[in-house]
Simulated scan of single mutants.
Amino acid sequence: MFRSRFWTMRINQNTVLQGKRVTLVPYTSAHVPRYHEWMKSEELQRLTASEPLSLQQEYEMQRSWREDTDKCTFIVLDTDKWSRQKATEEECMVGDVNLFLTDPENRKVGEIEIMIAEPSCRGRGFGKEATLIMMSYGMIHLGLTIFEAKIGLENKASIGMFKKINFKEVGVNNIFQEVTLRMIVDEQERQWLLEQTSYVDEKKYSLMQLQNPISDS
């Protein structure tokens, strides 16, 4: 298990987590153009409480996230499209999933965010699987024992998804119009998470393998 008090996004820079519906890969500069196009959406800006950035600012943000000591990010790919077609990662992107260390006094707490940006991929279990894979990764490799999610009150689908995977509502902020949900990973939850993600295949990621890195068949 990763035991250092401080870690950065670099811990996952060589990691691919392949699931049934989604595959998680590190956020690289190759993903920025598609990500930038997503974030032009007023809907996504509202749901993620984000401000629009220029393409250059988006590249700078990607670089800073790679070095930050309190963030870990994966880009979410469509596994079927990525593994069966001659497609680049950019063409297979459906969203992203993030972990933030928000409590400097307790490095066991991680705030999780999931965004499925492609409308055609919503409601198909992509977000749920990506969230479970990320939580399992955070639990095993980063030593996290508490997960929190802060979600806008209007985002009923995301709130419902987190509640289905055992998050409990712990507070509502009416000023920011968001709800906080939490999961404390006791032994029972740990075993449940491990069972839910037992099929995930952890592979080595290479920047030289941006096109169809699983198979050419």
Rank of each mutant, 00 (worst) to 15 (best):
S206N: 02
S64T: 05
D80H: 05
V32N: 11
E118Y: 03
T73W: 00
M39H: 13
I214S: 14
P119T: 14
E178C: 07
T48H: 03
T15Y: 05
I133H: 00
I140Y: 08
T88I: 14
F162M: 08
E169Y: 08
V109C: 04
R3V: 08
L44M: 05
M61A: 08
M183T: 04
V170K: 00
W38I: 11
K156Y: 03
L17E: 05
I75Y: 00
P26V: 08
A157S: 04
E189F: 07
L53W: 06
L53C: 13
Q56G: 08
V97S: 08
T145W: 02
N174G: 07
L53Q: 11
G143E: 01
E60Y: 00
T145Q: 11
E43C: 06
R3W: 04
N166F: 03
W192Y: 13
S64E: 04
E111M: 10
R3C: 15
F176Y: 06
R190W: 03
N155K: 00
Q62Y: 05
L44V: 13
P52C: 07
F147D: 08
I140G: 05
V16A: 08
R63D: 12
V172T: 12
T131I: 02
K156L: 05
D216I: 15
T180F: 04
M135P: 04
T145Y: 05
V94N: 12
E105V: 10
M39N: 08
D68W: 05
F176T: 10
S217Y: 12
M115E: 14
E154K: 06
D216Q: 15
E169I: 11
E148L: 04
R3H: 08
I140T: 12
I184D: 04
E178I: 09
E169Q: 14
N173C: 15
A130F: 04
T88E: 09
G138K: 02
W82C: 15
S50A: 15
M183P: 02
I11S: 14
E154S: 10
T15Q: 11
P52N: 10
V200C: 05
S198C: 13
I159A: 14
E111C: 06
A87T: 14
R10N: 09
L194I: 10
W7Q: 13
T23E: 08
Q196L: 12
E90Y: 00
I75N: 02
V16Q: 05
G19S: 09
N98I: 10
P213C: 11
P26G: 07
S50G: 11
T88M: 07
S198W: 01
M9D: 15
L17P: 03
N174R: 11
G127K: 06
T197N: 12
V94R: 09
E187Y: 01
E129A: 07
I184V: 09
T23A: 10
T102A: 00
Q196H: 09
S158Y: 01
S83K: 09
L47K: 00
V76G: 01
D216V: 15
C121S: 13
W192E: 11
H141D: 13
W65C: 10
C121P: 03
Q211P: 00
